[in-house]
Every structure is written in structure tokens, then in C-alpha cells.
Design a protein around this nucleic acid. Structure first.
Lengths: 161, 161
DNA sequence: TTTATTACGGATATTATTTATCCTTAAGGA
DNA sequence: TCCTTAAGGATAAATAATATCCGTAATAAA
């Protein structure tokens, strides 16, 4: 079980967009070259962010994407779900119903005991992702990378057309 | 991203094994028919549990599997990892290295900020699974299913050959 | 107004993973 | 001796992930 690599790409793109000056757009092409990933496929990930309402797009030269909300209002979970969908990692196929000793309809109102535990773990995962925003990601990155290098990245992205 | 259905099968098999009298074995065939899943493929899952040391197998007629430890000493995480492997759900491909503005070797000692957050969520998931044992699963199931039905299931499994 | 650039979406191809099935081997019990 | 079993290798089928290609409409710049 592994998350799609588009999740990684989307998160890095979002991190980059979060660092840009208000109102500036960056194109798929620039994001793809900056991250060294295939443009056409990255485009699908960005469309996912767009249809989830996390980013806003605009057409034409100088078009591209920007965040739809403040970085503090976009969580990791928002982005992961935009790419992976809202489904759970554990899917219960109700194999308890195949039990030959089980009367039909028994406990059908209550989720299977196995699923209850697995879903609680899923929820712990989600809760962990929900509590970290792009703003906090930015703070973490600012501790790793000197400010002038971050600025150089911004300039590269904004002047790459 | 979805867990394999073998995870569900393995958990249900483990739950069943946890409810058996000490020292009794149940065959792949019985477990497969009880749960309504393909025997040959379930066998692979059980082999996974076996090579992870969670169950003990024995050959010949009246052979099969039993738990290797007390139900209280086997966690959900043990079983999930036996099937899915120990890897993380988020794999960092270090795309930050492709950043054209980044000096080679920069922060290579420190994991990427995106990965740090994703791995913390992975760890929350694991911690949640680690803290629930088969014994606790059994308690939860005992609340759902009347004792006589549980006994009927045990008998079915032990007398199915 | 023209032209270049862009996001968007559909169609398709390629590759990897999941989900099986089949068969042989060796061990164990009746 | 015979039947049953787990183990493991080989292979096939189905599904999902990872792309690539192309046409369309919108938009800004020239």
C-alpha cells in the first residue's frame, strides 16, 4: 500500500505556491521543470487540486495556478484527499456475512469489529494530516533552507516563462 | 491507496484462531470456506503470517494453523505488517533535489519537510494499530455476537474436515 | 486583431501491482 | 501405504498507477 507519487508532487507544488507573493500565478510547465517531473502528468494532479477548490487557475500567457486560500487554511489532508480521494485505506467487504453459522442480517447495522479498529487507525492518520497546514510546512522548510535560497526559487518560478 | 484484501482476510483468520481452544489447528481449507474466500490465495496470506512468526503451522491431516502467541500479544499492526510489509505509505523520492536553485548536497542529512509531516501521520496510524490486540478485538466481537453463535463457529471450524 | 500561451478534458498506451490459479514437493497422521 | 496438509514456484488475469498525446476554449500580450 503506497500513496501515489502525485501526492508528493502536489504537496511540493502547494508548498511552492504558498511561498509566492499574493496574487501571482505559476504555470504547470514551470512547476514541472522546477520539480523535475513530467508536465502532462503533473497537470492531472494540479487539476485535482483545482477541482477540490484548493487552487485557482487562470488561462493564457502569465496564467497558471495560485492558492485559493491562505496557506494556514489548507491542510495536508486537504491535498492528500484531493489526489487520493476521500476513501478509507481499509475497505471492509463484509466477509463476516459468508460465515456459514451466521444468521442472515445479524448485526448488519453495526460495522464489523475488524473494520472498527482499522477505521480508527485511518482516522488517526487523517487527524494527523488535518492538523498541519501549508503555513506550518513553510515554517519547517524555512528552518532547513536559508532565506536567500528560498527567494531564488521564487524568482526562478516567477521568471521562467 | 488501499490495503490489500488479504489484510482483511488475515485479520479475520487471526480473530478466529484467537477464539480456538489452546493447541488446536485449523486448515487453510476450513478458513477459506468459513470466510468464503479463495483457498489458494488465502494460503499466501497465511504463509505471510507464518513467516512473520505470528502463527505456527503443522502438516498432515489435522494440520493447519494456530496462533504462535497469546491473543493479547499480537497486535493489529503485527498482522497488517505481515501482509503489507513494513514500508511507509508515503515514499519520498527527494524531488527537492531537482530544484534548479538548490546547491548539491543541501540538507541531505535531514528528511524533506513534506516527508516529515507525512511520516508523522504514518506513525500515528501505526501507533493506533499497535495498541489494539487480538484479545481486544475478541472482546469487541463478543459484544456484537451472542456466545452460542461464537461457539457454533468454533465447532464448525474444528469439525470441518 | 492576431498570435502565442495556457488550463482542461478525453483518449490511449505502458508499466506495476493485486488477485488469483495451478502444480510440485516434502512432511505428518491415520 | 495412503491421504491430507503447508510451502513455495510459476504463471495468468484483472486492476490501478503512471504516464503521453491531442483537441478545445479561454486569455493576455504583441
Amino acid at each position: 500500500m503506497q500513496l501515489k507519487n502525485q501526492v508528493e508532487w502536489a504537496l511540493h507544488c502547494a508548498a511552492v505556491l504558498a511561498g509566492l507573493p499574493e496574487g501571482r500565478y505559476v504555470s504547470t510547465k514551470a512547476l514541472a521543470e522546477f520539480h523535475g517531473v513530467p508536465k502532462e502528468y503533473l497537470s492531472k494532479a494540479l487539476q485535482g487540486l483545482s477541482s477540490a477548490g484548493l487552487v485557482v487557475s487562470t488561462l493564457g500567457p502569465s496564467g497558471g495556478y495560485r492558492l485559493a486560500r491562505a496557506p494556514g487554511d489548507i491542510s495536508f489532508l486537504d491535498i492528500v484527499e484531493a489526489i487520493e480521494g476521500p476513501g478509507r485505506t481499509f475497505v471492509c467487504t463484509e466477509i463476516r456475512r459468508n460465515n456459514p453459522c451466521r444468521p442472515a442480517g445479524m448485526c448488519d447495522d453495526r460495522p464489523c469489529g475488524v473494520a472498527r479498529v482499522m477505521w480508527a487507525a485511518d482516522e488517526a492518520w487523517r487527524a494527523s494530516l488535518r492538523q498541519v497546514s501549508l503555513a506550518e510546512l513553510g515554517e519547517g522548510i524555512a528552518e532547513d533552507v536559508p532565506a536567500d535560497l528560498l527567494a531564488a526559487g521564487r524568482d526562478w518560478l516567477l521568471n521562467s516563462r
